[in-house]
Design a protein around this nucleic acid. Sequence first.
DNA 1: TTGTATGCGTTATCAA
DNA 2: TTGATAACGCATACAA
Lengths: 350, 350
Amino acid sequence: MAARAGGQGGKQPTINDVAAMAGVSKKTVSRVINRSEFISDKTRKSVQQAIETLGFVPNPQARALAFRRNFLIALLHDNPNAQTVLNFQQGVLDAIKDSDLALLVRPVDRGSDKLLDDVRLFLEKQRPIGAMLLPPISENDDLAKICEDLGVRYVRVGSAPLDDARHCVSSNDREVVAEAVGKLIALGHRRIGFVRGPAGFRSAAEREEGFRAALAAAGLSLPDELYAPGNYRYTAGVEAGEAMLSLEEPPTAVFVSNDEMAAGVMSVAHGKGLSVPADLSIIGFDDSPTATHIWPALSTVRWPIREMGSRAARTLVADFLGSGAKAADDENPVMPSTFIERQSVAPPRG
Amino acid sequence: MAARAGGQGGKQPTINDVAAMAGVSKKTVSRVINRSEFISDKTRKSVQQAIETLGFVPNPQARALAFRRNFLIALLHDNPNAQTVLNFQQGVLDAIKDSDLALLVRPVDRGSDKLLDDVRLFLEKQRPIGAMLLPPISENDDLAKICEDLGVRYVRVGSAPLDDARHCVSSNDREVVAEAVGKLIALGHRRIGFVRGPAGFRSAAEREEGFRAALAAAGLSLPDELYAPGNYRYTAGVEAGEAMLSLEEPPTAVFVSNDEMAAGVMSVAHGKGLSVPADLSIIGFDDSPTATHIWPALSTVRWPIREMGSRAARTLVADFLGSGAKAADDENPVMPSTFIERQSVAPPRG
DNA sequence: TTGTATGCGTTATCAA
DNA sequence: TTGATAACGCATACAA
């Protein structure tokens, strides 16, 4: 059981109890709590002693009122992908578990015309010390501006730098996609299909650019019939698969902009009696659980989402603590994605 | 943009501004905010008028301090399944979006020996009005007791009633599993395998009981070689599949206690050149994204997780508002799961 | 380096 | 049905 020495009358001890026991004023106790520099080692120790024996824990509500800021960090997202959001949360928690911050989660609706007002009201009320924006809403500049206006620190998460280093954590989708597609080409593939992510998503654009860069580097072109639109959903993958695999000269490989759509393409291949990877190589993106659950296991790109969550939270915290601003400046805000080879890729037949 | 009539000096208007404008005391304004009954309609209206024109929003931090309670509800979980957690969150948000509650998310580690202390400290500090416990930690009675001790309302989510109706939202896993397995039997299957969930999980036990009930009802038995342990992970499904499908007389169908393991079994079937469902019918549980991403699409049981989230949150809120306690008592806390037939089930060969 | 007085914005007490 | 005043627990300005 938790050892709670208890103040008086079973209630939680307050700063007053600590002050009384240590024989100092509450302000001095406050200074110790907030790590003020102007404190003699002696009094600091005696105060810490009292805090210890009393089992005193500062009341976050009172601090929030006085600070005009809640000791929370908010995660704003539009539920693009459950695993992504949850992995990110996990990373955030890794970073804040030893602080006394807590995580506030706020799903929003990017399609709503009240999105901006919703977020503004939320931040005004909750007053978190910082907010983290997950893609795709991280790409919304108005949202960032709202944070700025309200004095809420923010970090935008994206597949490419969206803001200055202080306000952004990103991966390098473009490069890694180019690398992955390059391997396809090295294996001998010449007709390589592409399934795109939704219009207006930066991640979709980045992945496409990486794809095209790899093709260009090898002097290959992308015929229209091997280019399919998509929306990151399974059904879009199915549609793209049906279209491409019905071609007279179908592709021997395809890069699909996320795993879920890749699963759709693979289903179509199975349905048509094609063998993956013998008849068709497939590469996805995300390294979601789906990637390993389907058969054969999908080669894909792992997004360092947990690390990004941790990094985003650390940036916010360091920024908040001020002094520790080093953490935010030292680290490179671009975190590398990695290509993961599994069973869905092989040289083309013949 | 949000229409904020603003108090004075660009800052947020406070209760004092409202009181001044309406010509009443702040306590009266407070009464209006908190829907006290002892207010004349006339003053109520004039106060509401002032609130409106000022664009006043009560400061949650101040209220939290005075109420000794934060206007938050906490979600405690042990990350069993990303989709489940996120769907649940979505349901919670459906329920609280018109209140001024916010959602605090707290992943915990059920393996840690500090679990209880962690949760206690978290609740002591954050002082949410209520907490929701997701399985498997919802099965931990000590956790419920901690909530009770701290005066934090709680709701436990499970696959069977874990507590009294006021503190529990559950599904009816057992019945639905029995129904699903019954269909297998009706199709003519006689050798049906079973892959279990992890020991100590109530959901695993419920599903097994449902499975056995269906078998018993048909006078069938479960040979040892068709019973496999598992842990809800893909690899456990693979192991179970390898074992069962290497048998001299393999099963013609298998019920797997969750989708992820079912995907593992299906991979093994594919690898052995077996056709699903012609050679092997498979049923999973969860209706996770995986169920539709694999090929063929998996017949499974849909857990009403979003509805449960919504229900859990409404219970907490109603309980908190006191008056509206009806919501908590009227509704049946058991929410039905449903069997979903897709392509992974067919009659046995021959 | 430390203490005093006061503020943060709301609710509770108790009297009017 | 209302209001004056005291909590709520901590932080800040300004003194000492």
